[in-house]
Amino acid sequence: MRIYRIDHIGQVAPELEPQVALLEGLFGFRRTRSWENPAEGCRGVRLALPGNPGHTWEVLAPAGEESAIREFLDGQGGRPGLHHVAAEVPDLGAARAELEALGVKPAAGGAGGWLEASLSPPGRGPGVLFRLRGPGDLALCGDGPAAPATAEPPPQRAERAWAVPPDAPSLGIVALDHVCQAFPDRDELARWYERLAGFVEVWRTPEDEHPDMADLVLNIPGSTICWEVIMPRGEDSFIERFWNKNGAAAHHVTFEVADWDRAMAACAHHEVPAFGENAGSTDGAAWHDTFIHPKHTGGVLVQLFWEERPGVWVRSDKIPPVA
């Protein structure tokens, strides 16, 4: 199976407007589409990602009496979180056949307009949910004729209490760098993704660099977004605890910012604390990274980094545990 483009990252929230306001305000995302489709049981908004042309962020909230989004939230104890990664494949039928041959059982979504499947190795439990569609097929949630996407007029938005002031400071995000997944064996998952969809390993930490974790980074062909795999090491690894609670789920999402001081000032302005900050230099060029807790982002652990020169940030810095 070949993935040639990541379309969007999908997030679920119990209430749409406050989550969108956070993403527009603190994160600086820009709303491009909104819709409501009781037949599919969801309302949604698409937002453009700074620095990632063609990639968007999607927020879904329950609507109507029959809602898979409501079921997802109930299964999470009502907590919001990352829901899916949407991607395009050259041939949806061929993708289904290849997935089934590998023991992955995709389900049809949106009246059969796309496929849904956890793309983690069978037998390892559910992992990150992927939504797949064919080229040029506007069948993903919010795109098809059953759920027309409409731009909301700015005056209508400005009247709402959750509207974002036009001069509100934002993080200054310039790119969505990678999605990180927890897994017990990084090499097993890397081989699986290479066999499944041609992911290519580009970087890894030495196994003994950190006492409680090791990681590697994979390029997704056709995408500027990478995929990181972190695995536990030692007797009391925070990744082991995460795995025991969540399985092969997405652990965090990482964004690059243009100016570190601006990003931290935006967090302070929006009263969103950061934690676990690291700072250092590589070959004389400085870098910083930090995290924002899921309770301040709508259920997604967010990592921010800045680097003085491209390629000097050290991805292997310790990722703090999240309660």
Score class of each variant (00 low, 15 high):
236 D>S: 14
27 F>E: 08
13 A>T: 04
316 S>V: 03
101 A>P: 10
74 D>S: 12
48 A>H: 09
315 R>G: 08
226 C>T: 13
113 G>N: 12
194 E>P: 05
101 A>V: 02
273 P>G: 04
21 A>L: 08
141 C>M: 09
139 A>E: 11
116 E>K: 09
135 P>R: 04
221 P>Q: 02
319 I>P: 10
191 R>A: 15
191 R>M: 11
310 P>V: 12
256 E>L: 02
297 T>D: 10
201 E>Q: 14
42 C>I: 10
319 I>A: 10
242 F>C: 02
32 T>F: 03
114 W>Y: 15
9 I>F: 02
236 D>Y: 12
84 H>R: 02
198 G>T: 04
264 M>V: 15
264 M>N: 11
318 K>M: 11
259 D>S: 07
253 V>C: 08
315 R>M: 08
266 A>F: 06
37 N>D: 15
234 G>V: 06
246 N>E: 11
87 A>Q: 04
134 G>A: 06
270 H>V: 11
288 H>R: 15
35 W>N: 09
65 E>H: 11
4 Y>S: 09
258 A>P: 08
204 R>W: 01
190 A>R: 14
207 E>A: 13
239 I>Y: 04
320 P>G: 01
192 W>K: 11
53 P>E: 00
21 A>E: 06
52 N>W: 05
9 I>V: 10
179 V>I: 15
33 R>F: 10
161 A>D: 13
301 L>S: 08
317 D>H: 15
39 A>D: 14
3 I>K: 07
77 G>L: 00
203 W>V: 12
257 V>D: 00
60 L>T: 01
226 C>G: 11
248 A>M: 05
106 P>Q: 06
98 E>A: 15
74 D>Q: 13
77 G>D: 01
279 A>K: 14
21 A>R: 10
76 Q>E: 10
231 M>E: 15
20 V>N: 02
221 P>L: 03
105 K>T: 13
127 G>L: 03
78 G>K: 04
171 L>M: 08
24 E>C: 08
246 N>A: 13
261 D>I: 03
99 L>C: 13
250 A>N: 00
179 V>R: 01
242 F>S: 03
215 D>S: 15
80 P>D: 06
316 S>Q: 12
214 A>D: 13
185 D>P: 09
65 E>G: 09
78 G>R: 10
87 A>S: 07
78 G>S: 02
52 N>Q: 11
189 L>P: 09
55 H>G: 00
166 P>K: 06
44 G>Q: 07
92 L>D: 11
88 E>S: 07
143 D>K: 02
277 E>S: 07
312 V>S: 03
35 W>M: 06
299 G>Y: 05
297 T>S: 06
224 T>F: 06
125 G>N: 07
73 L>S: 01
53 P>S: 08
316 S>C: 09
249 A>E: 06
189 L>G: 05
107 A>D: 07
124 R>N: 12
